[in-house]
Amino acid sequence: MRRLCALCLLLLSAVTTDAGAMPSWVPFFGGPKVYREVVVADPYIEMHSGPGTGFPVFFVVGRGDNVSVLTRRTDWYLVREHQGREGWVTEQQLARTLELNGKQINLEIPTLENLSKHRFEGSVMFGDFGGASLTSIGVSYGFSDHLSMELAAGAAPGNIYDVDLVTLSLTHTMLPAKRISPYLLLGTGQIHTSVHTTQAQKVDNTNQISFVGAGVLYI
């Protein structure tokens, strides 16, 4: 009950925070307290009221002024100018601002060249598994540009049998620097099969599986 009260207070504090200001719960998630300061180098940058092209421009910050970068959401950056106004700036505009030392800001925007440097990857899959519709989610870690390991869990409720899968697989990407790359995978896991309760005979068992596969990756 105490935990529930604490959670409610936390949520309430988050909701009642002034519009735009950083809520008090952000530090619990490792949120930034010191923000990146940049200097506007273009004639001006436009601050939108929301992170999207559909949201109107409500303020502009002129060349030479400093802004703090609070967060990024998709291709938009929430910035705060020196008078405390907060607004969303496009990635293209922010990429042309300067650090306080005069160098151009490095936003570490993912490109094809540095895509192979990332290590974690999440996946969602829909497909067919022996006539049943399969839904699966997974997470993979790349040991190198070529080799990665994936842990995935899936469920395929069928007309007669329900199938649940947990798999661990190694994937070898042949051409990681290319836009199109073939890959090979080798894996193992467990498969749990159970019959619908509406069928007369009950089958409920767990088996180990091994599998090999191949595919083509398009980035």
């Binding site: 923000y35 950056y77 650090e99 936003l107």
Partner: peptide, 9 residues
């Protein structure tokens, strides 16, 4: 240390 820009996606 240049502060990182955290994402909130």
């Amino acid at each position: 240390k240049t502060p990182k820009i955290h994402s909130s996606d």
